[in-house]
């Protein structure tokens, strides 16, 4: 799994059946220091996350297994949870990072 920041939202009404009602959110992956790591990606969300939230997500085939209803869907990234505390060394990433509004 990876640490990430939700930076945007995507709406798609024409999508693969089984994905209705599943939020699609743009995530910027973060490295262990909280700095952006690589390019953004779009993930489904299994929680009520929104732009600005510090989250962790799973990618690959397992992403579909995290979805609440239909799991036989072509999804390769899903947000699993909010991150309240992420301690690295003596830093708590969650409190140090200013959410980018």
């Amino acid at each position: 799994m990876y640490l990430g920041r939700v930076t945007g939202r995507v709406v798609a009404t024409q999508q693969y059946e089984g994905l209705e009602g599943v939020p699609l959110q743009v995530v910027q992956p973060l490295d262990e220091t909280g700095a952006p790591m690589g390019g953004s990606l779009v993930a489904c969300s299994a929680i009520s996350s929104g732009p600005g939230d510090l989250i962790h997500y799973v990618d690959g085939r397992e992403a579909a297994l995290a979805l609440p209803d239909e799991t036989f869907v072509p999804v390769d990234a899903t947000i699993l949870g909010f991150v309240e505390q992420a301690v690295v060394g003596n830093r708590n990433l969650a409190s140090d990072l200013e959410p980018s509004r």
């Binding site: 945007g8 995507v10 709406v11 798609a12 072509p74 390769d76």
Partner: peptide
Amino acid sequence: SARQTNLTKDRPCDAVVMAVVDSWDQ
């Protein structure tokens, strides 16, 4: 994950278009 559709199940496929974007806020 691209093989998790009825169309591409057990097929040699590693990329599938699964949504058409209507709007995108960033």
